[in-house]
């Protein structure tokens, strides 16, 4: 009983963080067809911006939304400078990998210069601890588990029920036809990047609330998000969400039964096996498209 509760809780918690990160990667890939390697850096930057605003004395309820907006703005800017001008290049995917990596390194070193290497911590979403059955958990973790599905649901509603969401899905499917119905493709690309950056910032705020922050804190979540999208298929939004939770549970079970030591290796083995059977991920249909 205790084992099950622990795995369930751990899986939901990790899955929430992974989903938050992976959805942003998938959103950018489906709309623009590029892979944003600075996504982990967005997460880190978001956490630092939030920390700075809190340090200025703002209440987290004001500081966090401001940080999310600011990170979204950086996402927009990044798209306009290192992605948009390259659209149409023959080796777009490759060149954007290098420009987003370079931009990521720029931001990472900028953060290091501004805030220094000393670790920092954000206030938790909810302070305090509680017991679920026999395991002790923090309210911050519970808040993450509850808030994440709400945010993902809101994103889903935005994409499927609003006019702008419809436009984003359209751009993902056919850029020329989108222009011919009068969509502002440039703005929609920027919007996709901005939303992805905002989601990464939220993940950063989640993480900064229970772990020490550092300029390289985004690297590991980016890696996990990569594995999630490989696993779930990158060409949709729902695939990575399911895959994120699945991998969360898998990791929780592995570390419970085999220990943290072997979890990465096991995860990789499962990943390779999956790809040999289903090269485009397990939850994917053909083609590129949101939703």
């Amino acid at each position: 009983m205790g084992a099950l509760a622990e795995i369930l809780f751990g899986g939901l918690f990790q899955g929430s963080l992974y989903a938050m990160m992976a959805v942003g990667l998938a959103l950018v890939w489906t709309t623009i067809g590029v892979f944003n390697f600075s996504h982990g850096v967005f997460m880190m930057l978001g956490a630092y911006l939030a920390w700075q605003l809190v340090a200025f004395g703002l209440h987290p309820a004001i500081a966090f939304p401001l940080a999310i907006l600011a990170t979204a703005g950086v996402g927009w800017l990044l798209q306009a400078t290192v992605v948009r001008p390259l659209i149409g290049r023959a080796n777009l995917v490759l060149v954007v990998v290098i420009t987003t990596l370079a931009a990521g390194s720029l931001i990472e070193n900028g953060v290091l210069t501004i805030w220094g290497p000393r670790s920092k911590q954000l206030p938790p979403l909810l302070a305090g601890n509680t017991m679920i059955g026999s395991i002790g958990v923090s309210l911050h973790q519970i808040a993450i588990i509850v808030v994440t599905p709400l945010i993902l649901w809101a994103l889903w509603m935005f994409l499927t029920r609003t006019r702008i969401g419809l436009a984003l899905r359209a751009v993902a499917q056919n850029e020329d036809a989108s222009q011919l119905v009068g969509l502002n493709v440039t703005a929609l690309y920027g919007l996709a990047f901005a939303i992805a950056a905002a989601l990464a910032c939220i993940a950063g705020i989640f993480m900064g609330g229970y772990r020490f922050m550092s300029p390289v804190m985004g690297a590991d979540p980016l890696l996990k998000a990569l594995i999630v999208v490989v696993f779930g298929g990158i060409s949709s939004i729902s695939g990575p969400i399911f895959a994120a939770y699945l991998i969360g549970f898998f990791e929780a079970a592995c570390s419970y039964y085999f220990g943290l030591y072997w979890t990465p290796a096991l995860l990789f083995a499962v990943l390779i096996l999956t790809l040999m059977v289903r090269p485009e991920g397990i939850f994917t249909s053909r083609g590129r498209g949101l939703a």
Partner: peptide
């Protein structure tokens, strides 16, 4: 070729 994964209703809205 249009928008393969949109519905007719979506296309008309677009």
């Amino acid at each position: 070729r249009l928008f393969p994964d949109l519905t007719i209703a979506d296309c008309m809205a677009l």
